[in-house]
Amino acid sequence: MPASMSRDTERSPLLDVEGLTKSYVTPDGVAELVIDVPTFRLEQGGQVALRGPSGSGKTTFLHLLAGILAADAGRILLDGHDLVAMHEASRDRLRARSLGYVFQTFNLLPGYTALENVALGMLFGEGIDEARARELLDRVGLSDRAAYKPGQLSVGQQQRVAVARALANRPRLVLADEPTGNLDSLRAQESLALIREVCAEQGAALLLVSHDAEILARFDRVTELADVNRAARVDVAGPGDRAGRGDRVTRGAMGEGR
């Protein structure tokens, strides 16, 4: 039984995805299916890893879960709220208040200090709480780097700022897209441990996508993303989800692949 929560649990899942699809239109005008997820669930406070090699649609999947992308069809229930049915502004609000996102490239704003970057994570949610921002920086071991800008921080420190920012709004769910992809092995392990610890402390569920075996080995529950996404194309190490999508649909139903 892989990662996500079992259907027969009595506890309602934090994340409940059903019949989710997303297509892109190629320059040739052909609609290509890139996401086709019949079902996917994640329990409250759970920590799940998705093994996501290139071409498996992991970033697109996470963007859909975060409401950054609009789905074509299906249902994404986050804590009971359906992101697919929501107006964009409502999705934005939900994202600001209930979701944290750790990007592979961290996506810190270069003109802002570490403290400000963490505060930016609160700006569109409940509002800026400087004390909490400092507390989070302290938690990730950067209290002495609050006034540093990203360019003045090491890669590992930047990643920790990104973790602190993702947790700034006390999110229910943290999505992490190859969060250790830019770190060496040792630092990746340390960083992963930190992410998991802090998420657990803050009561946030964690859905992490990686193709790094060492990282995945740290999770009790790991799911093949290709099993989740029937539209995944896993045999081509393409540069992105959109490229060549639809050339091959290699996976069949993954119904209970949770």
């Binding site: 934005d92 208040r97 996102y101 996506n107 930016l120 700006l123 709004n169």
Partner: peptide
Amino acid sequence: RREFAILRALGARRGT
């Protein structure tokens, strides 16, 4: 544009 994308990912609306 990347800055705006990041702000949007953090919850900023288009109108913002």
